[in-house]
Amino acid sequence: MIRCMRLVPALVRFSTARVMAYRAEMVIWILSASLPLVMLALWNAVAAEGPIAGMGQGEMARYFAATLLVNQLTGVWIVWQLNYEIRTGLLSTQLLRPVHPLWHNAVWMMTALPIRALVMLPILGALLAWRPDLWVRPDPLMLPVFALSVAMAWALAFLVQATFAILSFWLDQSIGLFGVWYSGWALLSGYVAPLALFPDWAQRPLRFSPFRAMLGLPVELLGGFVSPREVGLDLAVQAGWVLGALVLVRVLWRRGLRHYGAYGA
């Protein structure tokens, strides 16, 4: 662990160079994630006749502005990267390096976060100009809570994608499986619709689901939609999912690696 820490500065330098080398692609990738804007147009039209589930047009704009930002801040692509490395055998080289491949990728994907957030700024500015009432002064106490929640959401996204990627040690179709997970995530995480709009019977399972822990919770925290009384439990549930995913990844990774070794790679 301590040895890993000493390597961090070097890894960050290396990763930043890697991110900057593909900056044009990066921007295209980021702009591809414009679905929250489409969904905002939809819910804005729905809320035009009056608020639904307590959300008017201003709240919708605030919700989806937050979604746009949080989605960028929790963006990872480890499932494609690791799947590619496993399929092509590139992983063998990665394993020779002094840093665990998962750490290596984690640092790489974290260094992309500032750029991702920067590219969002003009879009968020345009949203603010379009609907100034989306801005509310954030509660200073909530900001560290939000930061913690985003960090956990990022970690959970990374670990879930890593889980699906590790499945490619055994399966050819791990990317397809991830596609199924992704569609479920898109619907149930709050990405296409605020979770408050779901029917009553779905509220409890949605609140404690891993999908909300990956996106909805930090979005609601940033937008000020979570009552302070609920924050503690919500964060605890989120931490629980992160821990669970961490254990799962560790176990699967060990077993997968043994299986991978059997190829003689």
Partner: peptide
Amino acid sequence: LLRTAALVGPLLLVFQHR
């Protein structure tokens, strides 16, 4: 099929309210 089901989700939500 699962992906399609997820696509229809938002439609159901919208017209549950309006």
